[in-house]
Design a protein around this nucleic acid. Sequence first.
DNA 1: AAAACACCCTGCCTGC
DNA 2: TGCAGGCAGGGTGTTT
Length: 268
Amino acid sequence: MVRTLRPQVVGHEVQSLWTSGKALRLGRPLDTAALKKFAVGGRIVAVRRRAKYVVMDVALPDGTMGTSLVHLGMSGRLRVQPKDQERPAHTHVIWVLKDGREIRFSDPRRFGLVKAARDEAAHEELAALGPDPLSDLSAAYLEAELATSRAPLKAFLLDQSRIAGLGNIYVCEAMFISGLHPALPAHRAKERAAALFEAIQQTLREALVHGGTTLRDFIDSEGHSGQHQHSLWVYGREGDPCHKCQTPVKRKVDGGRSTFFCRVCQKR
DNA sequence: AAAACACCCTGCCTGC
DNA sequence: TGCAGGCAGGGTGTTT
């Protein structure tokens, strides 16, 4: 999302901002006043990613900065479209650009998050996040963290305070690639930390090369689907043959979420 | 400390 | 064709 959004909007001025006023995550109403205060009249100077958050930095006319934060949740989308194009259903925030285009956040399920503050440090959501797997994680750090947890490996990897940015799909994929069972207590995976680290990075890098994974909702800011869903090892493949050993892929549910794995290739 | 579950919300797909 | 049930890439809060 960031890779397609950045070249479209950096350097452009935010003329005005509109919100639906509807509540997003946890019933929290959109803070329209803050979203305006930290963007309107300013120039977008950077679009970045921190874990699963899209971070947009704006240089304001009074010389100060503003930082807007977007989490797409399950069904959130960011699109850049001309203002006269029909807006997507369930649009909740629009940054109107001076050149006649608009950045539109839509989110049917409203599990997403959009907020703004003075800077990144003022967003408490970001403070509790662990290292990013592609830039700040090392095999040594992962090994040390694994050693401190008895939780099932899958729960450990989904915990954003341990490692930030892995979701259900990529956790399933990384566990398959490294041959680790989702129920394995985290501390018992410590000897395999290097393999797990490599699997996590490989999974994310390949997904990025393929433009993301589109199962239902994901499209980038230009409206293109990802292609990585065609390269998944186990996710969504219940009953289909394992790509390594042909054993049917298993699905189990824990904590209300599906886990896909191969009971032959992934040892406890 | 950690697991299990409910919950926020809409859309889509399946089976009856 | 309609309806009910199940499912969904996330995160938080409560209970066990």
